[in-house]
Design a protein around this nucleic acid. Structure first.
Lengths: 215, 215
DNA sequence: CCCCTCAAGGAACGTATGTTCTGCATAGCC
DNA sequence: GGCTATGCAGAACATACGTTCCTTGAGGGG
């Protein structure tokens, strides 16, 4: 199907629709587009919107005010969810504890919109920014963002955020229960596991994703 | 400001607005909400929307059809952009080459909606899924997604996607030009750099972000 | 009991907004 | 020259949609 690319007017319209949506959270009306793109008539906007729809850039719902859906590469975007960034996680400092009750009441520093694919199935996840390189053995570097799902049930092999009481340290490791003690396995297979007493560990949550912005 | 939480009706409304937007790409009208949430009158919807706005869950533009903006944690979501996933990257295989011309014409496998923060300033970035653990020294594991900005100008210290002709290998490393040869430095400081001839390397792009979904 | 607020129902109103129709250029084609 | 497709202009039209007003009913205070 499809054809050549878009002409300048249509490109301008696409850009405007994207920007408008980003700025205001909803789509522009035909007259919004008309004015902002310097188009003389609503019918011209409609005419070009039809083309944009035919070429697969947008989807329109007829008779619906502001009923434009932006498609990306011809397909619908992956569903995403807002994830609150609650603070920092660093080796030497206690982690912000999140209980069922405090959920929602802690003021997020920021909110990231992330594809569901990278989150667990659970809705209630939060994000922490990593300070320092102490968790490099979990393939997590300074400045990374980890997505954490608060403790519910931990299974062997889960990557968890754990507070080691004696060492006064936060760590990210895969966890395995072995009788009375717990084995913490670094993600990097070439590194040795460490063993801790079950009493010495406080599991805060399960890491479901890591994000890194480079340089 | 704010008060207690939302009542069931308001919670239902919030959920509906989110789902509607996700499904159709634009916001519901008051009457859409009325019908789908089993509310008897538009004025009741309006009444509760005012509350949602007062409590900071949404922002409304008066007189504007479907003019609802969803706020998350009281603040606007970070702007995000659709990033096309173009395929796989694996140690033994050539990378899908992306030139200025082929941009836009390659059919993306998928599209991810990502916060701008994790992307470079450039618009034209794409994503590749990583196969295998051969790039673990760059803190990149099997199954990760790397966000790549096509080659423009590479600076010393940039993390790049490089094809080593002789070795027939793709690799992710920080790059440093040292006269006639090139030093490729693993991200993990404990690992040794490798050196290659400038003729032997084909830089495909610059890695601007890494995403990992765990288990 | 009266008065007030919170929550809701029902209907009417006005305008914001998509649609459509008529007309007019320009360009390519046979 | 006719014929058609593309792209634009202007206006009228129909309705989708937010707003507002009038009521009602259940609590709570005095």
């Amino acid at each position: 199907m499809a054809g050549k690319g878009l002409n300048p007017k249509q490109t301008r319209m696409m850009e405007f629709i994207r920007e408008f949506d980003e700025e205001r959270g909803y789509k522009p009306s035909i007259r919004d587009i008309q004015q902002s793109c310097g188009i003389s008539s609503t019918s011209v906007v409609d005419y070009n919107l039809r083309i944009l729809e035919r070429e697969g850039y947008i989807r329109r719902d007829r008779e619906v005010a502001r009923g434009i859906e932006l498609l990306e590469g011809g397909r619908r975007r992956r569903a995403s969810t807002g994830v609150p960034v609650l603070g920092y996680i660093a080796a030497g400092e206690p982690i912000p504890v999140l209980t069922q009750e405090s959920w929602g009441s802690i003021e997020p520093v920021d909110v990231l919109d992330l594809p569901r694919e990278f989150l667990g199935k659970e809705r209630e996840v939060y994000a922490l920014r990593v300070k320092g390189t102490s968790m490099i053995d979990a393939l997590v570097d300074d400045g990374d963002v980890v997505i954490v799902q608060p403790v519910t049930s931990i299974q062997d092999g889960d990557m968890v955020v754990a507070w080691l009481k004696v060492e006064k340290e936060v760590t990210l490791k895969r966890i395995y229960r072995e009788g009375n003690r717990i084995r913490l396995q670094p993600a990097n297979a070439s590194m040795q596991p460490i063993y801790v007493d079950s009493e010495n560990i406080d599991v805060q949550g399960k890491v479901v994703a890591v994000l890194r912005s480079i340089k």
